[in-house]
Structure formats: structure tokens, C-alpha cells
């Protein structure tokens, strides 16, 4: 299938009082048309910043210092961040769903207005047509009595409903790519599952591609075709969902997998946490950033710089010298 978005060697840095934070450091990935991929990592590993960079939504003190963001054959980096070209892509061709449905909707505008503004802007709809479409969209994401709820304000919606409204908003202009940044983190588990099912069904219906950004491998297991694992601003492992879950090759991926409870686990095994804390992105060593927390480290890890991504199988890459044999599924 054709590549929809390809990010090459992206670097995004933040100049703060604590020094230069390399939030995204030489990240490359791609997503095909109609594909669903997962980007997984702990808080602060750069997964959200990567996605905001793709949308060119990085604001000072942050800056994209190098890299290419090739979307439908065009390098988005050659456009001005808030210029007309980027504005015609945002919301229309690439849409984003944010983490906090509580704060990501404008509290003083009605849900209807927040839906119709993109329809009017990108699809050039008139007021009444936009209103009708907005009602259809709300209905589609499963909000009952959609046409009467258009006049409601965000605070009159529950968290799950707000995120449904966000999904409706993101899909309103039939985008080629939907980026969902921790879309279900703020919601309870039942709602999470419902919303993920809904998103999957809708992107299929709209023929859109979907990036699910999450810290929870369990969230993407069911939906993503491929998964990128990020750590300390870099991709440490990438592969198909099966590769990642059946034969993980990076110790960090294994650690993440050990944190996910399994429903078929009869032995009552305790969940293992990854020991230690994520590194300070302002003071990264030259070596592997996962080294201080790694249980498989060898001498080579301590002296040589962090290796590049290496193929361990077709389409399965890892950034590790050790390549310890993965857990067998």
C-alpha cells in the first residue's frame, strides 16, 4: 500500500532554563494509507512531541531543528508553521485527537459551533448545511439526540462524550490521517474500549489512517498493525504487532510487556515494573539511554554509543547490541 506519511530523521528540541532538551532525536517512521499504527512509550519519551511536530504545532521554546515530514509526497517542513498551506492541511487532511477531553474543548463555545467551524472552513459549507452535518457526525460517534445536543456546552457532556465529540470533530473533514494522542488515557477502562472500537470502525469507514499514541501497549495490541516503541526521544524498536508481542527484542519493550496484565494468565504472576526512572532528556549520555535500567546490559553497552536501528527480521528493527531472545508468547 502507498505510504501516506513518512517522517525522516526528525529532531525537535526545547531550549529551556535547564538546557537543551532533545525531545525527539532522529526519529524516522512511516504510515501507509488506511493503516493503523501505535506509538508507545512512557510519559516524556517524545511520542506526543513527534506528533505535534508532524502537525507543525510546536511552539517556542520548542523548535523542529531538522528532518523531513513527507505527507502525500510533500515535505511539510518547507511550509511556514501557521501559513496557509499548513492551515489547509490541519483539520482537513491531518486531524488530531488530544489526550484531555476535559480541557481540549473550548468551554465557552457550544459543541455544535466547535464542529461546524471546520466544516465551514475546509468544506466551505453554509451554516445550515454545517449544522446538519455536525448533527450527523455526533450521531455517528454515538451521541444520542445529536441534533438537540449541538447547542450544549462541553461541561454538559461527560468525559467519554466529550472524547466522542472530539472524534467527530477530527473526522469531520474526512482526513487522510488521524493522530490520536493518548485518546483514552483520561477515561475509565470500559469507555476506553468503546472509544477504541469506535475509532477503528470510523477510520475504516472514512478510509483514513490512524496513529494511536499511548503509554499502554494493551491499548494498541488489538488495533495497530505496526508498533513503534519510543524511549528517550528515539525509536528503540519497531515491528508488526505480532513481532512486538511475540518476539520483542529490545529490553525496554520486554519491560513494557511485563507491565501489561494478561487475562489468560492463570498463575497469578505479579506485574513487573521497569526499575528506575526515564532519563533526563537534557542530560543524555552518549550510550544507550536505557542502560541504567537495563537488566541485559553487557560491557559493550557501557563503552559504545547507542547503536542505530538494526533489522532483526523483515520489518522488525531494534536499537540494541544485546538482542536478547524475546519472551516466547
Amino acid at each position: 500500500m502507498a505510504i501516506l506519511l513518512e517522517v525522516r530523521n526528525l529532531r525537535t528540541q526545547f531550549l529551556t532554563d535547564d538546557g537543551l532538551i532533545k525531545a525527539v532525536d532522529d526519529v524516522s517512521y512511516h504510515i501507509d494509507e488506511k493503516e493503523i499504527i501505535g506509538v508507545v512509550g512512557e510519559s516524556g519519551c517524545g511520542k506526543s512531541v513527534t506528533q505535534l511536530s508532524v502537525m507543525r504545532l510546536i511552539t517556542p521554546p520548542g523548535k523542529i531543528t531538522s528532518g523531513q515530514i513527507i505527507f502525500e509526497g510533500d515535505d511539510l517542513m518547507k511550509y511556514e508553521a501557521n501559513g496557509p498551506e499548513m492551515r489547509s492541511i490541519r483539520g482537513a487532511k491531518i486531524a488530531m485527537i488530544f489526550q484531555e477531553p476535559m480541557t481540549s474543548l473550548n468551554p465557552v463555545l457550544t459543541i455544535g459551533r466547535q464542529l461546524t467551524e471546520t466544516l465551514e472552513l475546509h468544506l466551505k459549507m453554509g451554516k445550515s448545511a454545517a449544522n446538519r452535518r455536525a448533527a450527523e457526525l455526533l450521531d455517528m460517534v454515538g451521541i444520542p439526540c445529536a441534533d438537540t445536543r449541538l447547542g450544549d456546552y462541553p461541561h454538559q457532556f461527560s468525559g467519554g462524550m466529550r472524547q466522542r465529540a472530539m472524534i467527530a470533530m477530527a473526522l469531520s473533514c474526512n482526513p487522510r490521517l488521524v493522530i490520536a494522542d493518548e485518546p483514552t488515557t483520561a477515561l475509565d477502562v470500559t469507555t476506553q474500549a468503546q472509544l477504541l472500537e469506535l475509532m477503528k470502525a470510523l477510520v475504516e469507514e472514512f478510509h483514513s489512517a490512524l496513529v494511536i499514541v499511548t503509554h499502554n501497549l494493551g491499548v494498541v495490541a488489538r488495533y495497530a498493525q505496526r508498533i513503534y516503541i519510543m524511549y528517550a526521544g528515539r525509536i528503540v524498536e519497531s515491528g508488526t504487532c505480532k513481532d512486538i508481542f511475540r518476539s520483542p527484542r529490545h529490553p525496554y519493550t520486554m519491560g513494557l510487556l511485563n507491565c501489561v496484565p494478561r487475562i489468560d494468565d492463570r498463575e497469578g504472576r505479579e506485574l513487573e515494573a521497569i526499575k528506575g526512572l526515564p532519563p533526563n532528556l537534557g542530560r543524555l549520555p552518549g550510550q544507550c539511554a536505557f542502560l541504567p535500567r537495563c537488566e541485559h546490559a553487557v560491557d559493550r553497552c557501557r563503552v559504545e554509543p547507542w547503536p542505530e536501528l538494526q533489522a532483526v527480521a523483515d520489518g522488525h528493527h531494534t536499537r540494541c547490541f544485546v538482542n536478547p531472545p524475546g519472551m516466547t508468547g
Binding site: 504545532l57 501557521n82 492541511i89 486531524a95 488530544f98 481540549s104 468551554p107 467551524e117 472552513l121
Partner: peptide, 9 residues
Amino acid sequence: YIRTAWSKG
């Protein structure tokens, strides 16, 4: 929500 507004174009 201002970031959301920017993301809408």
C-alpha cells in the same frame, strides 16, 4: 483548547 483550535487549521 487553543492548541485544538490551531490543530483545526
